[in-house]
Amino acid sequence: MTTTHDPAHGTVDHGDHTHGGTGGADPHAPIENTAGEPDYFDVLQQAIRELLVEKGLISADEVRAMVETLDAHRPALGSALVARAWTDPAFKERLLADGTAAIEEFGIDNYDGTKLIVLEQTPEVHNLVVCTLCSCYPRPVLGLPPDWYKSRPYRARAVREPRALLKEFGTEVPDGVTIRVHDSNANMRYLVLPMRPAGTEDMSEPELAALVTRDTMIGVTTPRLP
C-alpha cells in the first residue's frame, strides 16, 4: 500500500460500505456510496488484491490488518491531542515545532509514515485544509476523511472562494482575520489546532477533548461550548 498519497479513486472496502469509489470510470462523476453493484474501481481493487494474494506478494491477513488499522484511527485521537496541547503549553510548543515527533510522543501510531504540520488558529489567522489533487488527509490523527472532503466542490472552492465556502459550513470569518488555505498536495499532512474557547478554564482534559470535533481540526468550524 502506497503511503505518500491517497488517490481519490482508491477504494477501501469496509464490508458494508466503501470509501472513495467514484461510481464509474468517469473522473468527473460525483463521489457517492452506492449500495448496489460494485463500481469500476471496486472491481479493479478486488482483482488486484486477489492477484497479489494469489501470487503470495501480500497475504489476506495483511489486507485485513491494514483495514483494521485504518478503522482504528479516529478523530478522537486528534481531539485528545488538541486537549493536551490546550492544557500543557510545553507539549503545544513541541507539537507546533514538530508535529510528527509530538504525535509519536503522545502515543499515536504514525502508521502511514507521513509528516505532520500542525497549524495554530489564532485571533489573527484562520487555517483551512484541503487536498485539491486527491484526498490527502492526516489519517493517523483523524482517521479516514469525510466524503465531503473528497468531493470536487469542496476541493475546488476551498482554494477558490474559502470565505464563501466557510459561510456554508456556518463559519463566518471576519475580514480582519487572515484566511490561510493549505493545499495538502504532496508529502506533508496538516492538522488544525483550534483555539480553546473562553469559559473552559475549569474543564478537564477529557471534557475539553469532547469540544474538539473532527471539523474543527480541518478548519471548517471552531469549537464551542455546548
Binding site: 480582519g176 484566511i179 488555505v181 493549505h182 493545499d183 498536495n185 508529502n187
Partner: peptide, 16 residues
C-alpha cells in the same frame, strides 16, 4: 491566484 478574489488582501494559499 485569482484576479477577482474578493476577500481581504492578506488571504493566502500555501502548498508544497
Amino acid at each position: 491566484l485569482w484576479p477577482d478574489y474578493d476577500g481581504p488582501a492578506d488571504d493566502v494559499l500555501e502548498l508544497e
